[in-house]
Design a binder for these strands. Sequence first.
DNA 1: CTTTATATTTTGAGTTGTCAAAACGAAACT
DNA 2: AGTTTCGTTTTGACAACTCAAAATATAAAG
Lengths: 223, 223
Amino acid sequence: MLPSSTVENYLKALYQAESSRTGKTLVPMGQLATAVGVAPGTATTMVKALAESGLVDYEPYVGVRLSSAGAKLAALVLRRHRLVEQFLVEVMGMSWAEVHEDAEQLEHVVSDRLVERMDAMLGHPSVDPHGDPIPTADGTIVAPDYGSLLTCPLTVTVTVTRVTDQDASFLRFLEKQDLKPGHALEVEARDSAADSVQLRTASGRQITIGTQAASKVLVQESS
Amino acid sequence: MLPSSTVENYLKALYQAESSRTGKTLVPMGQLATAVGVAPGTATTMVKALAESGLVDYEPYVGVRLSSAGAKLAALVLRRHRLVEQFLVEVMGMSWAEVHEDAEQLEHVVSDRLVERMDAMLGHPSVDPHGDPIPTADGTIVAPDYGSLLTCPLTVTVTVTRVTDQDASFLRFLEKQDLKPGHALEVEARDSAADSVQLRTASGRQITIGTQAASKVLVQESS
DNA sequence: CTTTATATTTTGAGTTGTCAAAACGAAACT
DNA sequence: AGTTTCGTTTTGACAACTCAAAATATAAAG
């Protein structure tokens, strides 16, 4: 039984919800429902079915967690999604800001043959255009945990490695400000009262962004 | 209301059934059901819904026909399918024999943006790898009616223009025998008793194939 | 410790697409 | 015409997925 698109979406959402979660706490129903975009009751029903199939562990009134089988399946969905994104940008010349929606559809239908073909054409990339790691064909993910513009050291040159938000206008903004993955910059100051972070790009331009935005831009100290 | 994959499949099947039909006769239910791969009753139900939406004209106990709206929609599905096939062959280097299944899935999810991008990358091709005409974005199809190896003149050099069968093993056979679209050959003889057609390729090799197969290879007299 | 607020689960119902098998219509063959 | 045959339609049922709203559990607050 190969999983339906719906099942794939639940697993993927669960995977991402688990990743952005401290410790091994279960993902609450409400959050999963919101992530998938369905009513709470719908999520409950679906999760019970997934638990039945052994794809998740479910504790009523507490939350859900992927089983190892579920996690592997989720990783493969993510692999397809991210390879498609990388392909759309690198081969088809689309903007990194607009590939998410297309990948969202394509991830459910691209065959293994096609996925591996894309992977080969792209030279087996390890990350997609947003810096998100691409799982291997066996479902393994290597995800270094980078700091964000909110947590990295000040006045040190860092390189953007990943952006954890797919909103098109946000991505366009980052692009315009030279904050795409690969670009260098340094954090000059943080002002918690003003809820802002002040940056200086490699070209010397100064930018101030909010902390919400800053937390979505992950960086690595430049070597 | 954008049509579901199911609706698209019915319309596409209907379009193709109508094309391979002499005169303006309606397509009988049974044939449509077989083409779509569902039970007869299912087709009846679906066709009534399609008629309700104005996509087909339906005469109970007689058959179905696409309305102009339905025909346009079908053409757009075919456009997506064929551009995807051309893309998979030309850009991704896949074999013409194996792209059909992938295109069958992708045709329902590729966005307009993506379709037009592919179209541009391919230089606005007029036919796909099998020689099937690619409808334009406004739903127009220019389909020259070629003769087949069964109807073309004998001992005259002709060029393969189109193959009206997607069976992978048949396509691989044609490829091996240099009978892909673009290749020249001539029909040396036909033997209706033996149900066969005798060909000679440009390289001088002689091949004998059955009339069923021959009727699926369309040709044009070489200029 | 009881009340209130919040999250979760249940229930009842609807949509889309499907099938098997019974009923039916049209046509073909004595 | 009468009857068999064949294709088509109807019927009843089911699977997957969804929602709104009622019921319930848990947690928080007084």
